[in-house]
Design a protein around this nucleic acid. Structure first.
Length: 195
DNA sequence: CGTTGGATTGGCT
DNA sequence: GCCAATCCAACGC
């Protein structure tokens, strides 16, 4: 939680096997803490979320909703199971490649959401556990920190519990934020097979 | 062992 | 506005 706002403004870099460099400025994150009902870390440790329990400074990648990867930064020491979800970045380098990955050319729509971000940067489970400080596939650079007065906070997006926590941090006024609406999903639109 | 629901997105009605 | 895509773990029987 303490480091989540600090990640805003930093540069997320992804180096592809062919040497291409993709980079973006982090503009939206959410914190997930130990004991947080909305966090995977609140459940038992499995292969699915093991990275979250591991060493800090690593990349935690997981799959959800059947077809979307999410990328997180593990922030607390081994055993504490916390992470910061990277929800949106402002594209800087390798935009044409991002466009190809996303099948879209609107720059504000390339990385404006957690699932979009991973697709644009070609991030998947194979990068789970990567060291974001020393890694050579994906890492985070210092970038330009966002001043506290330009950071807006709010409740997290897409979760139905833990709404009492203002753990979503965004760069105020950025045009590259996700379109997810904070708070519970608009009704529970989950399919009902039972009659 | 079968069903449900989720840190989502994109496409169709 | 509503639903499908499609994987994993919790929960109910």
């Amino acid at each position: 939680m303490e480091v989540a706002p600090d990640l805003l403004g930093r540069t997320l870099v992804r180096a592809l096997p062919d040497g291409s460099r993709l980079a973006g400025r982090i503009v939206e994150v959410e914190a997930y803490e130990p004991g947080d009902a909305a966090s995977h870390g609140n459940r038992r440790m499995t292969d699915f979320n093991a990275t979250m329990f591991g060493a800090p400074g690593r990349l935690y990648v997981y799959f959800t909703y059947g077809n979307h990867w999410m990328m997180n930064v593990v922030t607390r020491p081994r055993g504490d199971a916390s992470a910061v979800l990277l929800r949106a970045v402002e594209p800087i380098d390798g935009i044409p490649i991002m466009e190809a990955n996303r099948g879209r050319s609107l720059v504000t729509d390339l990385c404006s959401g957690p699932g979009k971000l991973t697709k644009a940067l070609a991030v998947d489970k194979s990068l789970d556990g990567t060291d974001l400080v020393r890694g050579h596939d994906v890492w985070i650079e210092a970038g330009d920190p966002v001043a506290a007065e330009h950071i807006a906070v709010g409740i997290r997006v897409g979760v139905s519990v833990g709404l009492d926590k203002d753990w979503r941090f965004v760069e105020r006024g950025s045009g590259f934020l996700s379109k997810g609406k904070p708070g519970p999903p608009s009704g529970s639109r989950r399919r009902r097979t039972t009659t």
